[in-house]
Amino acid sequence: MSQTDVRMDGSAETRADREATPGSAGGRRERLVTHRERADSYYGRPVLNEPTWKDHDIAAYLFLGGLAGASSTLAAAAELTGRPGLARASKVGALGALGGSLYCLIHDLGRPERFLNMLRVFKVTSPMSVGTWILTGYGPQAGAAAATDMTGLFPGLGRAATVGAGLAGTALATYTAALISDTAVPVWHEAYREMPFLFAGSAAASAGGLGMLAAPLAEAAPARRAALLGTAVECVAASRMERRLGPVGEPLRRSRLLRLGEALSLAGALAGVTVARRSRVAAMAAGAALLAGSACTRFGIFHAGMESANDPKYTVQPQRRRLAKKRAERELA
């Protein structure tokens, strides 16, 4: 009998209670490591806890927030250049998207009070805190812009609210990129350079799509241009991001949603500057394609991030690369 065996009867020759060696009775004995684990894994287990975010809440919030913000900016541009039809359609669309994004955010938080509790502080280094305040500052202006336009009351106030919402809308459309890049999820974190451009482009494309879908053909030229520019920025940012991230960018390169999003956005934007200039039906189809493309891009980014959080190699590899780089720098110095 081994001295380290633990017995229930507390025999004199055994070391019991606090003296006992944990797991020495055999069943829980520590296993010997017979081989080195692979350098890109952590015993095959995820290093990070997967974020508890659900795609139908948070990916939808990313899409709807971008649509609201960019639609307000488009509405302000349309109002200042004398296009009331496009301005009204964009203002109403922005208000609807704002309502939808608030619903998704509060559904994810669980209780509405949690959103209000976030207003108790303002922390400039926290994208979530800054985002909450952007949303709070933007919401009333977007509401006032839509309400005054629909009722015809207080036109001066409506114009001021439209311009204010247009300015705050640019922040609303892009802060979500900082929000997800500030997490430990490898794909989102490593893509911090391109993510704001990707989100800005995607938001502009979706707002352009909504403008093409809803506004009269004669006034939809700025929406078509926004859609084309947004799609170009989105595609360039996405391809640059996938190349720069190297092995960490694998989930992005594998994502079917991202490929579908790019295809739909490109098809919508190209249709927008060709057939949609003359045909109402084509304009609506192009607008719908742009909206669907932007939604696919946001959901694709979300799912790629989740995939990278669940696979330890996307966490371990960049860490090891950074360590190797530091070591090399130290040796050179």
Binding site: L86, G96, M150, A214, A288, L291
Partner: peptide
């Protein structure tokens, strides 16, 4: 549903401006 409502209300608003 939210996306459908946004598109419909926006389209109606665009039409009402005419």
């Amino acid at each position: 549903g939210i996306v459908a409502v946004i598109c419909t209300t926006s389209w109606l608003a665009g039409r009402s401006s005419l």
